[in-house]
Design a protein around this nucleic acid. Structure first.
Lengths: 213, 213
DNA sequence: ACACTGTCGTCAACACTGTTGACAACGATG
DNA sequence: CATCGTTGTCAACAGTGTTGACGACAGTGT
């Protein structure tokens, strides 16, 4: 068998696949090399280090956020859709949250997301300053929702439901004298899917940002 | 010099100090041992592994969130104050994901935060289900804000301002034809402190959650 | 056809991480 | 005083990202 010819694209592909299948901890340079059928260090011919590889992964994932948006549905639907896609992309890559923090080496796809969201808020009637604040607000909410659910995301639907159920049970069996509200609301905690909870929070935030709508 | 006697408290103290001084990456078991003046593996006599140590750190930091709250200031002020403190605590936290991901083994201080926030929303007139949704919403926003600013938090105020300025410059020098709104709003991006932006977002979210107020 | 050149996979090795088991020194207890 | 459990010390292991030397391959100019 001749040596497999690597490409940046194929490396990014298998990286995403490994992270999707085995989670973020199961992805190492050596497991990547094994999945590629090459020596682990061969990747360094195409990426300077692991950070650059993960940046390429993030660019790939974030590239799907702003494509084929239903512009006719109105600014609010577009905003929710962009944030939902962004959250999904962040879920597959927990370290993306930390990747967003670096200033200067920003990625082109991040600019597209920023531009799209700012544009929607301007369409909603906000001034430039208010639109910038609104942008920061929805980004913070989206990142937080993704960060909280990043761990549970690798689980199957059934396991996730069980985890939610166990969580509710813990809340329900607390001391009612010390935590009355928690015990009382335990049946409502972590209800439904994480995506539903996120959309609910996002809708509330948008209500607060643009009161008229 | 006789061997230093370690305690869970002193270990947690120096752990927090190291993370505060050298950041999250500068904290390793060996650097912790050096700071303690003992062999790095001595810590394992008091903590099962690094995860348990970090859990103790998180409990220490989160313990300050719900103490001495100005209950007379009204539910809204209390909610904002709790979330601000929680955000500050999370900023000092190494891996907030690993601390929040675990379901069953929750920490007592986390219960106190949950109870306090749920109580405020009940005071605001929300039903149990609505209060639970509101709790999830503000937690997601708080975690996200902390996650985004986690990296910049280790910088000094001056360096942080410079970073913000550089970030704005990047936005300002984009192609106006492709990113008109981003360029136009570049002067308003990352304005003020991160805490101010967070409070703004939180206020907007609370407006959306409890419209009457 | 041949030699050259630059690309790229391979291998061994380094520094670093968290963690474990054997060992020994210490303080409290009988 | 002897004993025992606690706890710091040391060496070592498995695993991580990364680097430099080596060599095989494809393409190119003459």
């Amino acid at each position: 068998m001749s040596r497999a010819t690597l490409t940046r694209d194929t490396i990014v592909d298998t990286t995403i696949r490994i992270i999707a299948e085995q989670g973020t901890e199961g992805f190492t340079m050596r497991s990547l090399g094994q999945a590629l059928g090459t020596d682990p260090t061969a990747v360094y011919r195409h990426f300077r280090d692991k950070a650059e590889l993960l940046r390429a992964v993030s660019e790939r994932l974030l590239g799907t956020v702003t494509v084929d948006l239903p512009a006719a549905a109105g600014w609010r639907s577009v905003t929710v859709e962009v944030c939902r896609r962004l959250r999904t992309a962040l879920l597959n890559q927990p370290q993306l949250a930390t990747a967003l923090q670096f200033g200067p080496p920003l990625q082109p796809t991040e600019f597209a997301i920023t531009e799209t969201l700012l544009c929607q808020f301007r369409l909603a009637g906000l001034e430039q300053g208010a639109a910038a604040l609104a942008y920061h607000s929805v980004i913070e909410l989206t990142v937080g929702s993704a960060a909280i659910d990043a761990a549970l995301h690798s689980l199957s639907n059934r396991e996730r439901s069980q985890q939610y159920f166990r969580w509710r049970s813990v809340y329900a069996t607390l001391d009612p004298a010390e935590y009355p509200e928690t015990v009382g609301a335990s049946a409502h905690m972590y209800r439904g899917t994480a995506d539903e909870r996120f959309v609910h929070a996002l809708e509330a935030l948008l209500d607060g940002i643009v009161p008229s709508s």
